[in-house]
Design a protein around this nucleic acid. Structure first.
Lengths: 247, 247
DNA sequence: TTAATAGTGTCTATAAGACAATATTAC
DNA sequence: GTAATATTGTCTTATAGACACTATTAA
């Protein structure tokens, strides 16, 4: 009798039915100033024809590795390897969330700088970026997972340098402000934002350079920055109008 | 062929080995001014004789229900049903974290007001509260899970009214301050803390009453408060000396 | 009375937000 | 030039933290 067998013998299989473990990934990026999520089109039942978050079974690997692998299978591997921030979001395991059997899904949240159309992966023909406000009626409980992911992203923008994960290695303050605007869904005062970002120790550091040319319709050349070494923003960049979220 | 069978037939069982799903609970309370965690003594291999977080297999129930059930099995059910705050902490599934087979554990974090010695549950003889600084060398990866739970607790005290989950339905500002001191591991200035707590809308509301008598060694009778309706503290009660945690 | 604790007042430095002003650049 | 944008300045209000102070109560 192996360890695994004696372990399994401890319980009645009827009381502990077989469980499958999957990972699902909420991958977020910003395209054309809009916050977008990576979705796939389901071909089979259940939820055939519906859109869903990319995901799949966990193999002989860590959960983090499984999430990174699933993401790499749907988008450009090269980009995914380097600069994608990946963190665990939560685990969803209600009985019945998958009609076929008990499936416990560990959801991950990924933040990526502007990515090209997802066409390089193996299943890439089925994967595409969708503005988050258009991502409705997803398969399984993926509407809930997406909602939780968005809430997490909005929160973490406040007190972590996460916004820098959505831009290139060098960026302007305006680009960073556009990230906050896209994720929070509201415009921010340019002047106050600028001063605030530069006042947080370790959030950004100057490269000394500037962009090659000003904006499309005029304006000075903006200075370039890179991400600093801060892991937490202090003071934080709090969202305006928290009142509705407080009670 | 049932749905489950066809589902399982999609993959090679050698590539997707069987997985067990468990819940583990980091249950925290405050006893004698110290932050304590509920631990059990393991009787069997592996890690026989080691202490571990309470936990067990997920049955035909939600993950939340599983966590609540496991907690109830180790402590007083009546108390657990009402006033315990329970939230998902994270999921731990590295291959090899359990030497017997692949086990994915969904960890939960529980906050409870001062609880009696854990003696009422079925396995209660093995369960006891341990000051967190003495909870070392736990089984499996439970040291890491506990560390993550403590970090989460310390963070949430800052921007949520979580501290009220550690005290009774009616409490004094001093009792609340003792919670912060125990969880953060540092004393807080009584006067500033007092004014700050009362200034956060919805954090606490006055009951109109006071305690029956002052402190052991003198002092006025403190006013009593109950938890307010705020779900987020604004402004937050930030920990002092964040510098070391920022970089 | 004494010591301990609850609760308030005050002052300073920092931060947030409103808003104005200046500077630079594409067209 | 004109319009757009980057960046800085100023002012008001809110907050954090240090510290002093008063009030109340058990022993």
């Amino acid at each position: 009798m192996t360890d695994a067998e004696s372990f399994l013998a401890e319980y009645d299989p009827r009381e502990y039915p077989p469980v499958a473990v999957t990972v699902d990934v909420v991958a977020l990026t910003i395209r054309d100033g809009k916050l977008c999520v990576l979705l796939i089109e389901r071909g089979e039942q259940p939820f055939a024809g519906h859109r869903a978050l990319p995901g799949g079974f966990v193999r002989d690997e860590t959960l983090d590795e499984a999430a990174r692998r699933e993401l790499a299978e749907e988008t450009d591997v090269r980009l995914v390897e380097d600069r994608v921030h990946l963190e665990q979001l939560g685990t969803y395991g209600n009985p019945g969330r998958d009609p076929r059997m008990r499936v416990v899904s560990v959801a991950y949240l990924a933040f990526a700088p502007h990515l090209p159309e997802a066409t390089a992966g193996s299943d890439a023909a089925r994967a595409y970026w969708v503005p988050v406000e258009e991502a409705k009626d997803l398969a399984f409980d993926h509407d809930q997972i997406l909602a939780d992911g968005l809430e997490r992203a909005r929160d973490k923008l406040e007190y972590t340098p996460l916004a820098t994960a959505f831009v290139g290695t060098e960026f302007t303050v305006s680009e960073l402000r556009a990230v906050y605007a896209a994720v929070w869904g509201e415009e921010l005062h340019a002047g106050n934002f600028h001063r605030k970002v530069l006042s947080v120790p370790g959030f950004v550091e100057s490269t000394g350079g500037t962009v090659a040319r000003g904006g499309e319709r005029g304006g000075p050349k903006a200075k370039l920055y890179r991400a600093g070494d801060a892991r937490l923003l202090h003071p934080a960049l709090l969202r305006p109008t928290r009142e509705d979220r407080v009670r």
